[in-house]
Amino acid sequence: MKTIDEMLHLELLTADQHHQISAWIAQADTPDEILKMPSALWQAVERASAVMGIDEDLLRPPAMDAGDLVCG
């Protein structure tokens, strides 16, 4: 929900889109139910995600110079 809120704050979603998407997510019991969101809402999320560069962030390999990060 934080990402959806940020999309609203950045004016990438309208207040109505934000409300509808939030309501859909809140009523969904599983990730599969979220995937059944109406296409117009998915398209709004996809456009906002593209502007925010979310896909690029998810595809970027992890930084190996993370300072004092201890894994494992």
Rank of each mutant, 00 (worst) to 15 (best):
S39L: 13
A23K: 12
E11K: 13
A40K: 14
W24L: 07
Q20D: 10
T14W: 02
L12K: 05
P31N: 07
T30E: 13
I54M: 10
V45P: 00
L69A: 08
A50H: 08
L41N: 01
A48G: 04
C71F: 13
C71V: 10
K2H: 13
L13Q: 00
E6V: 08
H18A: 11
G67Y: 03
A40D: 14
R47V: 12
L10S: 06
S39R: 06
D5M: 13
A48F: 03
S22F: 02
M64Q: 11
H9V: 08
I34M: 08
D57C: 09
G53C: 10
M64W: 02
S39K: 07
V45G: 02
R47M: 11
S22R: 08
D68E: 06
P61K: 11
I34T: 05
E11I: 02
A40M: 06
A26Y: 01
D29W: 00
L8Y: 00
P31Q: 07
E56L: 12
A50N: 08
L58C: 04
M1D: 11
T14K: 01
K36F: 03
P62S: 04
G67R: 07
H18Y: 14
P62E: 06
E56T: 10
L10P: 00
R60S: 14
L69W: 07
C71K: 14
P31R: 10
M52P: 00
I25K: 12
L69V: 12
L13R: 00
P31S: 09
L69R: 11
L10N: 10
D57N: 09
P62Q: 05
G53Q: 04
K2N: 08
I21K: 00
E11H: 09
S22D: 02
L58I: 10
W42H: 14
E33D: 15
P62D: 06
L35Q: 15
V45D: 02
C71M: 14
E6H: 09
M37I: 11
T3P: 02
W24A: 12
W24V: 01
M37R: 02
E33S: 12
